[in-house]
Structure formats: C-alpha cells, structure tokens
Nucleic acid binder design. Structure first.
Lengths: 325, 325
DNA sequence: GAAGCCCGGTAAATCGCATTACTAATGCGC
DNA sequence: GCGCATTAGTAATGCGATTTACCGGGCTTC
C-alpha cells in the first residue's frame, strides 16, 4: 500500500473495463473509422478516469513515431514581459491542440539545441530568429519534423515597429532622428531590423537617415550618446526597447536635459517600469495574441504536413503615447 | 537521397561497427562490470560518430523506465533577469550530469503541470515554491520521481533578503520602516516571506514593526502609499523588488518628494533599469551560482535515491548600495 | 583431464503504447 | 441456407532502446 504507486498502463485500463488494450487505445485516441458503441466507449473512459490513467508519453511517442512536444528555443536575451506573454500565449494555443510547449534557454552553459531536441523528443522546434541551415539539418536529424521560423521572414516582421516609432516622431514635427541600438549581442540583429524600419520611414518623409548610436544600460554610456545626438542636431530618439529608452533618459538627466523638450524618446515593449519613468515613456506594443496565433498555426500546419508554409509572421504594432514624446 | 534522412538507430551503429546492438548499448552507456576491449569500444564510438547517432529519447526512457528530463515549473510571475539567470544556471549545472532542463510557464491557458510532466516524461520536477501535497501526488503519478522543493524550506530562504534590507536602513539611522508589497498575486507569498525578515530585523533592533502597504506598478497607487507612509512617520521603505521600488520613486515624484532625503528606498534583484532610476536604486542581489548549485545537487541526490534530502536552499544575499538610501 | 572461471560478446525479453491484420457474431438479401 | 457486408471487437507485431540470461572458448587449478 505504501508502494510508489506504480502508474497505471493502458492494459490496466483494459482489464478494468473488460476490453482489450487495443480497444482502449482506439477509444482514448478516438480513432476514426472504428465502430465502437457508446456503451463500451463510456466504460473505457470511466475506467481510465478511475485509475487516473495518463498515457506514457515515451511509449506513445515510440509507437506513434511522433511526440506532441513543441520545443521553444529562447535565445540568450533578457526575457522581458513581451517574451513571457509570447510563451504563455503560444503554450495556450498549442495546448488547445494537445501539444505541449516546453522552453529551453540557449545559454552559454546549456546543452546545444539539437541535443535538447533529441532529449525531449520534440517533433517541432520553434525559435525567434531563423536557424541557419546547418542547425536546421541537425534538428531534423534529432527528430524534429518542423522547424520554424523557416525563412528570413522574421526581419520583415520587425520593420513595422521601427516605422511606427519614426512616423510618430515625424508627425510630432521632428526632422532629425536618432536610433539607440542595444549593447546586447543577442539582440543586435533584431535591432538592425527595427532600425531598417526607421530608415524607411525617414526616407519616405524625405528626411535624412537616422543617426544610429550604440548605447548600453549604463547612464554614462547613454550620456555620451546623448551628447553626440545633441551635437548633431537630433531632436528625437527611437530606442530599441524600453530599457534602452530608460538608459537614454538617465543619460539626459546627467546633462540636465529633459524629455521631451530637449529630446523626445520612444521605446518598445511597454515594460512595467515604462510608465513609471520620468517622464513616462511613449512606447510600442503589439497584439501578442495575433503573433501567437500565427505561430501556432504555422506549427500545426507543419505538423499536419500541409505544405502551406505561409507563415506570414506579420505583426500589428500599436503606439502607446505617454509624455516622453 | 532526398529522403527525410531517417535517423539512425542503435542497430545501424551495431551493423556499421560489426557488433551486436547490445554491445552498442553497453559501450554508449559505458556500463560498468562489462568487459569490452578498448579496440571494440573505439570501433563502436566511431561508428556512432560517423552516423551522427543520437539515442532515441523515448525509446530509452521507455526501456530504462526513467528519462533524463528535469522540468522546471515557473509560476505566473514576471520573469526578470534573476529568474533567467537561475534557469540558465540550473540548466548548465544539470547538463553537466547529462540531464536536460526544460521549463514550463504555468500560465492561465497552459496545461496543468502534471499533464506537462507526463507529456515530457520528466523524471524530476522543480518549482519555486513548495507544491501542495495533492499536486505532489499527482506529479508522482505522472511519472516524476523527484519533486522539489519538498518542504516549506523555501520561505526561510527568503527571510535573509528582508533582514538585510532592514538592517541596512536601520544602520542608516532610520527608526520607522515601511514595506512595499507587490500587487502580483503569484508573488504574494514570497513577499510575505521577505516581509517576515524585515519584521524580525526590526524586532531585533527594538523598533516597531514595519508598516506594510500594498502597492502596484502604477504611480498613483504608489503615491497613495507614499502619502500614508509619510503621514505615519515612516522614513525608509523596503520594497519587495526593484519594480516596486521604481513605482515608489514615481509615487514620490508625484508628491514632489525626493529620495533618499524624504524617503529612502531599497529594492531587490538589481534589474537592468535599477541603476538607471532617479536616484539609482540601492538593491539586493544574491549569488545565483550558489542557489543553482544547491538546487541541482538536490535534484541529483533525489534521482540517485540518496535520501539525504538536506535541500538547505540557503541564499547569501548581498547589498548593492546606490543613491536611494 | 575435468571443473570452474573470466573474457568478449550475443539472443531474447521487455517497456507501454499504436497499428495492422484478422475473426466471431450478426444482419440482410435472395 | 448461402454469400456477403457490417459490427465489435481481439491477437500480434513493432517502435528503439535497456537489461537479463546465456554461451563458446581459452586459461587456470586440482
């Protein structure tokens, strides 16, 4: 009685319901094309419930040749509120299709992604940026059927963010913009993509290209950038994200400058402290539900072998206007 | 040739190496008590390398009755830098023992933890706070051998943080402290634990108990709390974390108060924007490596059935003094 | 020279499930 | 009463590993 409570198998359920293990399998996966009377079906279902039966994932995966695990690889970047929401949303959307999302932080000391993929037996791997071909091949070898994002689709999804930032500032009458890059290496390419959007918007408005400067989450470094921007006649900054924007605000403080009078600043993400900044930060948010749904659909489509790989990861950014612009 | 590149099995390796599949298994798991000449061993290893063989996790788990997956359940809390570091560190520490860490965000829409545990076939589940007995039982039924933290050990680990916060302020001459709780429900119990440490420190110093007030990440709410504290003669605040502290700073700004003159504020975590606040925030950090190592050891011990469950999750907090105190 | 033992290795059972192939019983038309 | 289709299932097989049981040959030992 004090046994480790051996977990019940499908045979146990079969015995309890008085049917064969095959039938249990049919009922539990309600296999189409199989004629099973409602009465039997209920009997099996009830037996399973009573025994608190849960199919053994490994056995199922082994037999079916496919697991229901989706692995999300998170690059070595600070995990902010935005990413959390993405993960949570994706997990929910996939759960609705009986898929389980697990995440893996690609840190310096962790195991390489293909190893992890193989270790969990994931049948799909989704990342933030496109994987390089070699990695994709590796992942397939490791058992993944679907690997997303597939193409360089990602970069286009980031452009609108920069565009909206820039357009807002241009509408406000600013003629010379600056762009604050991030010091975080994992975020560099994303920053370039967003900067691309800013450049486009400036070009469209017939303005000179933005002055992009590297910054870090250090007030002194940011202060240097601020000095440079001021010297060049820049009056408004598109920051890579809210943390970068906060750093700029701190850098301005060091020079006795105030926002938005001396320099308007706009961030991205709407982190919790964005509205608490001095002044409260204008920022960009986007409909995470939409993004999540798209991604989930892409995974599902891939798993269903629907070659309709139209993973148009379009995002629909919205501006949140506060006092920093 | 354009085949989906069927992944190699251990039999393939056996064939390539000219030995039996059993031998391959012995070599790859370098099973003790088995006499295998170096020459054969190398032959197998090389064949495996050539074929890019990776054992099929599901099959292995099924046969061995145990997977090498550790599932980390992250409660519905904002994932800050601290948690990221914890995850990364833990993943690394476990990887050193051939264990794979995957995480799962316990959001509103996700699947219940036992389901996830069963889905990935985790042999250990670790969380942040103790699970309730019912959940623990469920997890064991779902296949987990080890579930941590086991006891209410956690709360004690949080006390030192509050104590150090309070002692610092008391040393600075403050006689009446306030405590800023968080509005986040998932963090409430952790906040209470930390508050416990503050209460202890006050009692030891012969001071009245701190005035604990609920706050949120909204400047207005924080402003109300600030007014209340001021009215009660409180001169220093221990904030649950840096975000809460940032909110208090914003609330003070609304009243035209400045820190630390009117109210000293100390946070916890040292989030990236802590040093960028106005004034830069004094805060608490702790040695994540230590925490991580302890947890990893506890998991390993549990898996090895070493009943030495001395998971003394002690942490060693350090103070980072900036200008807000 | 037979008994025992270590060495180097293999055959076969097993894990829990999905799936394919098959069957016994019943209904139906003629 | 025969052939055939449908219903309601079951038996058997296999997924890719681990693990147990076993085996032939050379060596020692008595």
């Amino acid at each position: 009685m004090t046994r480790p409570a051996k977990r019940p198998t499908s045979s146990d359920v079969a015995r309890a319901a008085g049917v064969s293990q095959t039938t249990v399998s049919f009922v539990l996966n309600n296999r189409p094309g199989q004629s099973i009377p409602e009465e039997t079906r209920q009997r099996v279902l009830e037996a399973a419930r009573n025994l608190n039966y849960r199919p053994h994932a490994s056995a199922r995966a082994l037999a079916a040749g496919r697991s229901d695990i989706v692995l999300l690889s998170i690059p070595d970047i600070p995990i902010g509120a935005g990413i959390s929401r993405f993960i949570e949303g994706l997990a929910g959307a996939l759960a609705a299709h009986k898929l389980t999302l697990v995440t893996h932080l690609a840190g310096a000391h962790g195991r390489p992604l293909p190893d992890v993929c193989a270790a969990v037996g994931a049948s799909a791997v989704v990342g933030f940026e496109s994987f390089d071909p070699a990695t994709i091949k590796e992942l397939h070898r490791a058992g993944a059927e679907v690997v997303l994002p597939s193409h360089a689709e990602h970069s286009y999804a980031m452009h609108p963010i920069g565009q909206i930032q820039a357009k807002h500032l241009i509408e406000r009458g600013h003629q010379r913009l600056g762009y604050a890059l991030t010091a975080h290496p994992g975020l560099a390419s994303m920053a370039r993509d967003r900067l691309g959007g800013v450049i486009e918007a400036c070009a469209e408005a017939g303005l000179p290209a933005p002055l992009a400067l590297a910054t870090s989450l250090d007030a002194d470094v940011a202060a240097d950038a601020v000095a440079r921007w001021s010297a060049e006649g820049v009056t408004a900054i598109c920051a890579f994200n809210d943390e970068t924007a906060t750093a700029i605000l701190a850098g301005m403080r060091a020079h006795g400058l105030t926002s938005p009078q001396d320099l308007a600043v706009i961030g991205v993400d709407d982190i919790p402290t964005a509205r608490l900044a001095d002044p409260p930060l204008t920022t960009i948010i986007f409909d995470m539900d939409q993004v999540v749904t798209r991604r989930a659909e892409a995974v599902l489509a891939g798993l269903a072998k629907t070659t309709d790989q139209s993973d148009q990861a379009w995002i629909d950014p919205q501006i949140v206007v506060r006092s920093s612009t």
